[in-house]
């Protein structure tokens, strides 16, 4: 502990503590609780049984009442520790409860029924993870379908985004042609056109080209990202033209130059765009909500929202599925956080 304290209190320059240091650490420690706490609480809650979720005050860890099979009873019975009239503590299984009286049996001597006031008994509880919250929706509900749809949309949209954006960026950075600046200006200008402004006409366009209620209707409108073209173009501008000229001397075709030279050299920028595209497409909500009407086509986000909007909200399943929805993004965060933060700090894209 003293080493931890020493680590926390160590300061550069060796001068004493002033209020800014205290404020810094209060802010940082509070930050951990406020930023991580809700997600941790979600994960812990997702392992609780419906009964445990309805409890107030809630327990931190998922707990369940211990159960035991008793001879002569078909269903497992819940175990309670009971304070007996003689002052001793005894572990009994509850058969049924009538009003304030519980009928209990000793698991070792199941013939004799003991009547106990419910105030005299406390449930025997231990930490138990209700994994059925995860297993049941993945087996029965449409959840696996939603998961598949989301993966399909994310993978396809990202591949097409990388391909079309890099081709356009190549043309805009390495060729001189009339109207190039015009095209670039058009792309940059639409950086500020959000989906919500063109929602209604986009819906009719997607209908007119026959993509309504299909996953391609979700994918195609999102792939021509101005951000992606802009990011890749800025990166490709730094690739020296001499490389391209040398390749042309060796009779490389323009396609080969794009494919064999530009793409490998732009790999860092492509990686950043790929990460962002995966996160964007995985998280998309409003557009899939508008364009998908058949339930079996829903993406995870739309499906989750539908479950949560039902009259009888089944929180135990919803919490578990929220955790599943979070997993890919958390993986991206853990492994690729450095690239993302560098990308944001460098270009202000999100």
């Amino acid at each position: 502990m003293s080493r931890v304290a020493e680590f926390l209190t160590r300061r550069r320059g060796g001068s004493g503590w002033d209020w800014t240091d205290i404020f810094t650490w209060v802010w940082l420690i509070a930050g951990i609780f406020v930023m991580f706490g809700p997600a941790v609480w979600l994960v812990l809650s997702s392992f609780k049984t419906p009964a445990a979720l309805a409890e107030f005050p809630p327990t931190v860890l998922p707990m369940a009442t211990e159960q035991v099979m008793v001879e002569g009873y078909d269903n497992p019975l819940e175990l309670y520790s009971v304070s007996m009239p003689d002052g001793s503590e005894q572990v009994l299984a509850q058969v049924r409860r009538v009003g304030t009286i519980a009928q209990m049996v000793d698991p070792d001597a199941p013939d004799e029924i003991v009547k106990v006031n419910i105030a005299e008994r406390t449930p025997q509880r231990r930490v138990a993870f209700a994994t059925e919250n995860y297993v049941v929706p993945l087996e029965q509900n449409d959840f696996l379908l939603y998961l598949r749809n989301s993966v399909f949309v994310t993978v396809m949209a990202t591949i097409i985004t990388l391909l079309t954006n890099s081709m356009a960026a190549f043309a805009l950075s390495k060729y001189r042609f009339r109207g190039r600046d015009g095209v670039m200006l058009l792309i940059v200008a639409t950086l500020m056109v959000p989906l919500s402004v063109i929602l209604v006409p986009l819906y009719s366009v997607v209908n007119a080209v026959g993509l309504f209620d299909s996953l391609w209707g979700v994918i195609l409108p999102t792939v021509a990202t101005p951000t992606g073209v802009f990011l890749l173009r800025q990166y490709m501008l730094t690739i020296p033209d001499e490389l391209l000229d040398a390749a042309r001397m060796d009779h490389a075709s323009e396609w080969q130059i794009y494919w064999r030279i530009i793409l490998p050299l732009a790999a860092p920028a492509l990686a950043v765009l790929a990460i962002f595209s995966i996160v964007w497409r995985w998280n998309d909500f409003l557009w899939p909500l508008v364009v998908l009407s058949r339930k079996e086509l829903y993406t995870l986000q739309v499906g989750l929202n539908t479950y949560a909007g039902e009259l009888n909200v089944q929180w135990h399943y919803i919490l578990a599925m929220t955790v599943v929805t979070m997993i890919p993004v958390v993986l991206v965060f853990v492994f690729l956080q450095r690239y993302i933060t560098a990308g944001i700090a460098g270009s202000g894209l999100k």
Partner: peptide, 20 residues
Amino acid sequence: AVFFFPVLLSPVVVGLIWRW
């Protein structure tokens, strides 16, 4: 990373976490 973490979460996940 602590303060950046929620940025990547989907809005639906954020909404549900806080509704809970």
